[in-house]
Design a protein around this nucleic acid. Structure first.
Lengths: 213, 213
DNA sequence: AGGCTAATGACAGCCACTGACAGTTGACGA
DNA sequence: TCGTCAACTGTCAGTGGCTGTCATTAGCCT
């Protein structure tokens, strides 16, 4: 049914996926800046113009898989039990996302390629910049979900945005540290995430010197 | 003394400042994307090539004043009394920076132009992206200062980076809200900063519903 | 005055990206 | 099965950010 109708849609999906994989493969091996759009298009045997009909710009293709994972993240947060407090809900959602990631990612590209891509993003200035902007757009969305869970107005009560901002700040930092480190596994970023989130509340407390636990 | 020697340095400073002011003026009136580097250069009566000898790219000139303020911020944090706990030191430094800002900024451009520029940055995607990347680079620097204050190793103890990440997350959010709002005054962003930082610890606490205060 | 060197201008070229138009190819009804 | 329509694609020309190169200018210093 779904595969017989729409040869057109099928071709489109193939072209898009081909462009996506080729781009990530070239980016991760040669580097983002040393790969031209012409090169990607040529390997996929389409014109450069066609590339730009599938992806608005060179950055977008590099962040496309990330985009999918983030959408799942928002959906997963919406499904957390309402009795969890906001920070706990965010924390459990992110840990759950790491666990479900391989399945989500493998529908598009090999997991291993995505992990290499993530590391490339963190080490490529222009990509990192766009990635960060997208992540604060995601934060706004998360703040609205949190406010909804708690029955609050996001514009009059600062707490949803503040909680999400603090959470997001720690998330981005773990992403950066993980990208700089050598271990590209999911286990490694999951452990890092968990440990750093646990340090959030103690870090804001007054007395660091008294307890070193 | 300092003014007689170096006619050359003087000219350079004038050219740079002329490029800076012209750029910000054009960006804030016409928009960043609708202003070409050729246009800026032509107004200043230099070649486009010269523009790129003073500023690495079009974004850099838009963020140049911001850059100066950020440097002052780091210096000010270093001078906070060591008995303040890390978060309190960050909080007081940022409030102090708002107070000292007019003086720092006016050495380069009119304060009012800088405030307009800040709002333009927040509402221009490409600029916002670069701004955010620079702000996480700043965070790394701040984390090292905090660690030094506390006599900790930034790589083995997560708390300096975590505290700074949470702080930075809230800072960026207030910047965004301020940029979206109508009031471009320093007072307004100062008040926003103070209020939101005060909500940080309560936001991470478990029970939001019990106390609405 | 004249040589040295930093600063600039002029030019050619690469690459990301866009608009316009023409050609091609699935979809779908007659 | 065929022709028509609409979607998709290729080609081309052009803009703008940015870089390397080289000749020229202009301040500096003896």
């Amino acid at each position: 049914m779904t595969d017989r109708i729409n040869l057109r849609e099928l071709k489109k999906e193939r072209t898009r996926n081909s462009l996506l994989r080729t781009a990530l493969e070239l980016f991760t091996t040669q580097g983002f800046d040393r790969t031209t759009v012409d090169e990607i298009a040529e390997v996929c045997e389409v014109s450069q113009r066609t590339f730009f009909r599938y992806f608005a710009n060179k950055e977008e293709v590099a962040l496309a898989v990330q985009q999918t994972v983030e959408s799942r993240f928002v959906a997963a947060l919406r499904e957390r039990p309402p009795e969890e407090n906001p920070f706990e809900a965010l924390r459990r959602t992110v840990l759950g996302t790491w666990d479900a990631m391989s399945r989500v990612v493998e529908e598009l590209v090999p997991l291993e390629l995505h992990m290499r891509t993530y590391q490339m993003i963190e080490s490529t200035p222009s990509l990192l910049a766009v990635h960060l902007r997208r992540s604060i757009e995601l934060e706004e969305e998360l703040a609205r979900v949190v406010a909804e869970r708690e029955g609050l107005d996001v514009d009059s009560d600062p707490r949803p945005r503040v909680a999400v901002a603090a959470f997001g700040g720690v998330m981005r930092m773990t992403g950066r540290l993980w990208g700089a480190g050598g271990d590209a596994s999911i286990d490694s970023i999951r452990a890092l995430t968990e440990s750093y989130l646990d340090h959030l509340r103690p870090s804001l407390a007054g007395q660091w010197r008294r307890d070193q636990g």
